[in-house]
Design a protein around this nucleic acid. Sequence first.
DNA 1: CTAAATCACGTGGTAGTACCAGGTACAATT
DNA 2: AATTGTACCTGGTACTACCACGTGATTTAG
Lengths: 219, 219
Amino acid sequence: MVKINPIKKITVTEQVMEQIASWITSNELKPGDKLPNERLLAEEFGVNRGRVRESLRALALIGLITIKPGEGSFVSEHESPIPAETIVWMYYKEIDNFEDIYAARKLIESEVLLEASQHLSDNEINNLEEILQNLNNLSIKEKNNAAFQQLLDEFDLHLGLCSSNKIYSKLMQTIIHLRHESMLKILNVPGAWENSIEWRTRFIQAIKDRDTEMVKKSD
Amino acid sequence: MVKINPIKKITVTEQVMEQIASWITSNELKPGDKLPNERLLAEEFGVNRGRVRESLRALALIGLITIKPGEGSFVSEHESPIPAETIVWMYYKEIDNFEDIYAARKLIESEVLLEASQHLSDNEINNLEEILQNLNNLSIKEKNNAAFQQLLDEFDLHLGLCSSNKIYSKLMQTIIHLRHESMLKILNVPGAWENSIEWRTRFIQAIKDRDTEMVKKSD
DNA sequence: CTAAATCACGTGGTAGTACCAGGTACAATT
DNA sequence: AATTGTACCTGGTACTACCACGTGATTTAG
């Protein structure tokens, strides 16, 4: 008996999506490049504009392109971040689970830190220190939770990008977005700010001292 | 000077998407439930069917719903897996990076294992053993890479689902899909099958013996 | 009466057209 | 030269019509 493989019915929308995606993945279109407009794409592909739109919106959702109404569609910049809303929707069931998010962040972060401590450039360290400085200033001047969280996210996001393992970087992104959402739902815990700042300060110091042992027992 | 917040222009499509998503996240619509058809939704929302379609496709892309042509759209089952293609697209830049994927899987898996070793039910262990048995049979009878990989994915996916930390489960899903893609691109390494089977066999044995030390030095 | 073929209907998939709103670029005006 | 205005481009939205496929009731052949 011959083996019969199931026929996968691929829709027009999916074909368009894959073809455009392949332009980007093969680097025929580079970050920042402008895509042909929807009407032109539809004509070239020989499909209806609606199909092209569905494809483009899908690509935007996963972060491959950025759509700017009135301007056009553009290939997302390098390190293409997955849109925050997309992540939140994908993990919506878990955003109340603060402990799980914390554990996951710690797990990934511990690896990133260990690695980053080996080959973080002076420039990158300076960037992190600058954010840390902003956090300190904010902490002294005004109690603004949203701004604080913004900076905290920025610090950790930066840190994630420093990993030479790009999967880690993206996983960090994911977890930080989840933390962001879950944090919006919890009250301010006394001392939380100070703790957050303190241990990140210690971490930076350890990096500068090339003290890998210190890094290992982070948090 | 008063603070002016930027106006976020939310499109019709996004509003529809959010509203439908909220039905699901709030559990008004449960897994398996059928959504109203596109035409009806469009009428109820007072928008064009195209907007509804774009929203539904977006929700399908992130795994919240499943669209079955000719039948309708349905809320995805619990543990809603993120569609494999979506993950592959999001991480497309990294799927050639075999070492990174391996490292990431090891990192997550080590945590899952440690945890799973504490509270894996007999039923779950049986499931895993069954897949392992299939792997052994396959290994002896026929050299079928695709089938082997399928079973390997199934084992690890099952394992990930055993974690009480749901974030870990999803991260495992993500990494396994990436491995799947990257594996399609590499040749068969001699002895790889046997190694894969052997250490998973050892792991299962350790679980049954409640030997957490053994689990810790996995792989 | 049972089982198979058929047909109607519902659903998502696709196409075509037209118009609106916001952005850009460049010419016209001051 | 700086400002204003205007034509044009782009994505956002709407309405309509039809196709392909799946389901289930109906009809038909045995």
